[in-house]
Design a binder for these strands. Structure first.
Length: 317
DNA sequence: CCCTGTTTATACACTT
DNA sequence: AAGTGTATAAACAGGG
């Protein structure tokens, strides 16, 4: 039982920005893309704090999706009825939170920003994204279809759980919650920063799992533990990112910044992916104070992260 | 009508 | 102090 007199543990605001929350949601899905409603669902499933004032935070979240270049919008295919588009992470956004803080990025991801300020290039965002998603689609789909066939699943109906098989590569995006967790636990001194409730006391970098329902989420739903090294930041082997894949027909076409989008080719041919892992609430949750605001808790030492790996991958392109 | 998505504006916190 | 990133509010348009 939670502390008496207190709201339940989990009503504390998680130490994540909407950007990181959204990124987590997207990354949690095998296809790395989710419709808005599933992003909502993901967040509400795991962060009880967001089960209230939905109007408010959902408006903010939508604002973030539109406003930040790190999110790309992917249309649905005609045969995939439903409202709204899918949302995915821009392949080049890399590890935006490499500084270790999921509340505030060091720098905002901008398309055509740092590495390729080529004004002539057609919107880097759309371009990269399209390319990336083509590969994603290829990989994921083959895995999904194989899995569906094996499992006698008609059409990957909503509610399926193929998480174990639909991760063709052992990759984890920097935003994948697994990574976030792993990173946080790696934080030097991180564990020392816990309150008795297992809640970070003074640092945004310390483990934030208590905010989430279903501590075992990664274990149960994402048995993607893996050996280090052989994966890129995009959910596919580095090789396929660097080479190949260019021959694919443009499957997904990000909409946002590309006036020249091919109209006809819509979204991934994948099923509508439900928020993965709707674990039963375990209510670990935090109690401790969100000291983040007032306390200038040092952002902690930047971790060597997959960001560097990502950068090199992107640079190749 | 409600949901989705875009845009503008303001306030605040953090970084440099 | 200025610049930047994030949160929030709100207006608006388009689509199912």
């Amino acid at each position: 039982m939670p502390r008496p007199g207190r709201n339940t543990y989990s009503d504390q605001k998680p130490p994540y920005s909407y950007i990181s929350l959204t990124a987590m949601a997207i990354q949690s899905c095998p296809e790395k893309m989710l419709p808005l409603s599933d992003i909502y669902k993901f967040i509400m499933d795991r962060f009880p704090y967001y089960r209230e004032n939905t109007q408010r935070w959902q408006n903010s979240l939508r604002h973030n999706l539109s406003f930040n270049d790190c999110f790309i919008k992917i249309p649905r295919r005609p045969d995939q009825p439903g409202k709204g588009s899918f949302w995915a992470l821009h392949p080049s956004c890399g590890d935006m939170f490499e500084n270790g803080s999921f509340l505030r990025r060091r720098k905002r991801f901008k398309v055509g920003g740092v590495q390729a300020p080529d004004p002539l290039a057609p919107s880097g965002k759309a371009h990269d994204a399209a390319h990336y998603l083509q590969q994603q689609a290829k990989l994921r789909l083959s895995a999904l279809h194989a899995a569906a066939a094996a499992a006698h699943l008609p059409q990957l109906p909503a509610g399926y759980n193929l998480s174990s098989v639909s991760q063709p590569s052992s990759f984890k995006h920097p935003f994948a919650i697994e990574n976030i967790i792993a990173r946080e636990y790696k934080m030097p001194g991180g564990l020392a920063a816990f309150s008795s409730a297992g809640y970070p006391l003074h640092s945004q970098l310390t483990p934030a799992w208590p905010h989430m329902y279903g501590s075992g989420m990664m274990d149960t739903a994402a048995p993607i533990s893996m050996g280090p090294g052989d994966y890129s930041a995009y959910g596919m082997p580095l090789k396929s990112l660097c080479h190949g894949g260019q021959t694919l027909p443009a499957v997904p076409v990000p909409i946002k910044p590309t006036p020249a989008s091919v109209p006809g080719l819509h979204g991934l041919p994948c099923a509508h992916i439900p928020a993965f892992l709707a674990n039963s609430p375990q209510s670990l949750s935090p109690t401790s104070p969100q000291t983040g605001r007032s306390s200038p808790a040092a952002p902690g030492e930047p971790l060597p992260s997959s960001a560097s790996l990502l950068q090199s991958v992107v640079a190749v392109h």
